[in-house]
Design a protein around this nucleic acid. Sequence first.
DNA 1: CATGAATGAGTCTTCATTCAT
DNA 2: AATGAATGAAGACTCATTCAT
Lengths: 209, 209, 209, 209
Amino acid sequence: MVISPKHIQILETAEKLFAAKGFECTTVRDIAEEAGVNLAMISYYFGSKAKLMEYLFEHRTGNIGMRVENLLKNDSLAPMEKVELLIDEHIERAVQQQRFHKIMLCEQVINKNPVIIKVLRKIKIRNTQIIETLIKDGQKKGAFKKPVDVVLLLSTMIGTVNQMLINKTYYRDFNKLDDLTDEQLQALIKKRLSNHIKKLFKAILTNEP
Amino acid sequence: MVISPKHIQILETAEKLFAAKGFECTTVRDIAEEAGVNLAMISYYFGSKAKLMEYLFEHRTGNIGMRVENLLKNDSLAPMEKVELLIDEHIERAVQQQRFHKIMLCEQVINKNPVIIKVLRKIKIRNTQIIETLIKDGQKKGAFKKPVDVVLLLSTMIGTVNQMLINKTYYRDFNKLDDLTDEQLQALIKKRLSNHIKKLFKAILTNEP
Amino acid sequence: MVISPKHIQILETAEKLFAAKGFECTTVRDIAEEAGVNLAMISYYFGSKAKLMEYLFEHRTGNIGMRVENLLKNDSLAPMEKVELLIDEHIERAVQQQRFHKIMLCEQVINKNPVIIKVLRKIKIRNTQIIETLIKDGQKKGAFKKPVDVVLLLSTMIGTVNQMLINKTYYRDFNKLDDLTDEQLQALIKKRLSNHIKKLFKAILTNEP
Amino acid sequence: MVISPKHIQILETAEKLFAAKGFECTTVRDIAEEAGVNLAMISYYFGSKAKLMEYLFEHRTGNIGMRVENLLKNDSLAPMEKVELLIDEHIERAVQQQRFHKIMLCEQVINKNPVIIKVLRKIKIRNTQIIETLIKDGQKKGAFKKPVDVVLLLSTMIGTVNQMLINKTYYRDFNKLDDLTDEQLQALIKKRLSNHIKKLFKAILTNEP
DNA sequence: CATGAATGAGTCTTCATTCAT
DNA sequence: AATGAATGAAGACTCATTCAT
């Protein structure tokens, strides 16, 4: 399929609305109006609303992991350093693609569109394999404890980040951070998430205090 | 409002379907058929589909925390023991009420029904306050480090559990646990979640290795 | 059919609501709640909502005209005096039974329930006959001109009164009568209607200026 | 809003059915079938059934009064001549737009849709102002008596015409006019209404016999 | 290639009425 | 005699999708 700027425009508008109102509550009309395109164009371009969602998943999950792949091969980094980079990579992407991550979160719960189920499963497998490789490497080098429940550990990383994305506003209120701009708040949350999750991973993976 | 057995029956059917297909994709007809009641009865009992959801939230969040309240007052327990009880309490409830927790998770993302937003906010505040009290107590007794980012810590507990609920099937596949019954798998996940999260909390709260 | 006080109560509540919101927009539930009776009682008492309306028509149109019949026989009154009494009689009843008159007005337009069509027709015939008799008597006595279009004349009386009932509030506003109570306004309108219509009738029926 | 021939077609079908069965008793399906258009098209074109009614009111009340405005300015006409033209104008329009006038009559009684209440009020104010201006002019020229109750006088005109519209069939029966076609009957009624109302107005406004 | 107009299918909701008690 | 619970039928409306142009 040829992807024109108009395709991107529609996809991003759809993403915004899906994240805000959910897939079902977003009408094709909403998307068309918000994106400033003709209503029929969406079916014309993507075939259907469901297919639009699938394209969105492809669009967002297409080119991930290049940097991570290289990271793994880099022998000059210690295992824990690699893990830390992975954590930061995930936080960065989750925050950058907040909307899409929210959509993914819901879609994982709902489980309806088989295509998306498949894409999600692929992502999960990929994620698990990467961290598994990393951990096994660390264990081989004696840097990490064994055994490690990889999925559980990954759940902590992904779950903590998701939960913080969901509770951004609540976090601001509870910690009385009203004077921060959205960008500042986001940066703060990223920093704190990073430190926090790294500490957690260290506790699970290493013997250091 | 009087709650008859039929009310409960409808509520639980609705919960099941909402968790499986999402609120929007579940039609009132679905619920009526699955619950074996007349279509009109749902409006008759609950007023509307949206109200039904609200009643579900009330029904499920109504009487939580009695045990936790008592726990907090018990002076014979060490701070970390209290925290551990809290963790187990949460895991127990989340697994027991998996469906409802999935619904809550989605609703937090979507943010549509104001009544539910309010209920969710109340729950969050309650949860944060409980753990905050616990932590401050531990800090006063010198058992816990300071400072502690309460919301971040809570996000780890809730996020990890949610993520594991979502990935139950994936967890079985990845760890090759096909010979376990659903109950056994569930018990295993509960156990592992408990150990895992306790370890994480210890790493954040205490100085012990 | 036995008419108990509860019947009356329901009928009058129904009348009030039918006049305010129309027959279709008034639900049986509305009537039951407003009347403080059980919902099922209305069907139980009257059979159906349509039948309730029919009973209302019977109830309100049952015992009219006794006074008028006597009036006609009274030989001590001049023809015009009789007509004037008739006019006042009509105004009095229309104002007293405003709600019912509004209902009748709508029902005449809508034409749906055959029973009510019949009742309305009977009333019309009766009214026309009475005034026709009166006019013929006046013509015989040389007091009234001939010919007279009875239905047209009646239309003026009934139409003017109806229109004023409908426009009560507008009449108050336009004539800046805000300081009057509802009762005072009503009395004023009755008085003015009476004078006005009598003048009109005189112009049509007699030769006097 | 763009008004296509199909809009008009739907509006006129709706008008016909509203006049015959009332707004509430007319279903959108009725209108769609009678107009030979798709059911969804009515919402598509007008938004809702209520809005359709509002458009009908706008459509019918939009361009009234041009002729009347000019009439008022014409100095070659005597005050009573102007009044007579006004009466004929009203009769003509009421008979021409019988259906709509019936709808208006009912809507004035029921008072539900705020938009329509507003339109009706505007019409009433306009009507009253026109006739008030006419009458004041006549009074200044010494042609008319004073004082005159404008709303009462208007009620006679409008009420009489309405009542005759409602009772057309009855009028035919009572006066044994079965051999007349509908058009002939209508013409007769218009003629008689005109003479009748003019006579009434003369009686109220002037001193002549 | 792009779109305005149109539509079939499906949704929630309301309501008068019924019926067992 | 009276009623609380229940329901079948029908209503307005929405929406993704289609299709002629």
